[in-house]
């Protein structure tokens, strides 16, 4: 397990030997990691690598077969409802009711999270995320990009200490995507919030994340900062590193760029590391 450095900030998210199996399918296999408070980390991997399963288990939407999860020091398997008011999430795979307007949707969730002044917070977010012009339109009539921003506004309503984001800038044009990334960086820094995201946008991950965990077949097969991973794999960018890992081209095959023996640990020594070489 990779714990936060002893002298660093405490872990806001800590996952230990997390396993999820469905009958004979092992979706997540003894996954262990932690995300220090006030940082952004990413789970990367191809389709079916176990990213969404992991995020779902952290949120409590999915019960693990084995393992432990704590968020903000709270055991999510025993006291989930103590942590949920301080968390939130957004995903393009979960919608908000389409017949409700953007404002109505935000009002419902503002009340579910118990905001004291919901109208004020909704107004702030509408302005910051450029939603003002269509707050009274039914959510189902919004463009994909507008819906993504609305989902993000919902995720930020309660000013969460821990934010889990699945594809946070999916469907956004480059300009809006850039502004959202800037917003998330500022939010994290001012609130000292912790963000865990799953994304296929490598440029986004390089910019936002101090730590990247590469997943394949339900395991973390490598991790480090984006710069470390790029250097370790001898590649020009994170996208190429992603392809190397997704296609099981081991670091050993990268010749002199191969890192030293520091990359050890149970979650990195599974069978997928003994697979075919590219």
């Amino acid at each position: 397990m990779s714990a936060a450095p002893a002298e660093g900030p405490p872990a806001a998210i800590r996952v230990s030997k997390l396993t999820k199996s469905y009958d004979d399918v092992l979706a997540v296999n003894r996954l262990s990691f932690s995300v220090p408070e006030g940082t952004t980390a990413a789970l990367l991997g191809g389709n079916g690598a176990g990213k969404t399963t992991t995020i779902s288990m952290i949120l409590g939407l999915l019960l693990p077969t084995r393992g432990r999860i704590s968020v903000l020091g709270i055991d999510m398997l025993k006291r989930r409802y103590d942590a949920l008011p301080r968390m939130n999430f957004s995903s393009p795979y979960v919608d908000l009711p389409k017949r409700l307007s953007a404002r109505e949707n935000l009002m419902v969730y503002a009340r579910l999270y118990g905001l004291r002044r919901p109208a004020r917070r909704i107004g702030e977010l509408a302005e910051e995320l450029d939603l003002t012009a269509f707050m009274n339109r039914p959510s189902g009539t919004l463009s994909a990009g507008q819906r993504t921003r609305l989902a993000l506004a919902k995720a930020l309503l309660n000013e969460p200490d821990v934010l889990l984001l699945d594809e946070p800038t999916a469907s956004l044009d480059p300009d809006t995507g850039d502004r959202i990334r800037t917003y998330l960086e500022a939010y994290r820094d001012t609130r000292r919030a912790t963000i865990l995201l799953a994304s296929h946008n490598m440029a986004e991950v390089e910019r936002l994340c101090s730590r990247v965990m590469m997943m394949r077949a339900g395991r973390i097969v490598d991790e480090g900062s984006p710069a470390e991973l790029i250097r370790r794999y001898g590649r020009a960018n994170l996208e190429d590193v992603f392809l190397d890992i997704a296609r099981d081209r081991r670091r050993a095959d990268r010749g002199s760029e191969r890192p030293g023996p520091e990359r050890t640990g149970p979650e990195r020594t599974g069978p997928e590391r003994t697979g075919r070489a590219a």
Binding site: G60, L61, L84, P85, N88, F89, V94, P97, K98, L112
Partner: peptide
Amino acid sequence: LEEMWSRNLGHIFVSPLR
């Protein structure tokens, strides 16, 4: 069913609503 039709259950069940 309204929640199922709108695929909203994921948001509801990660909110503090028990």
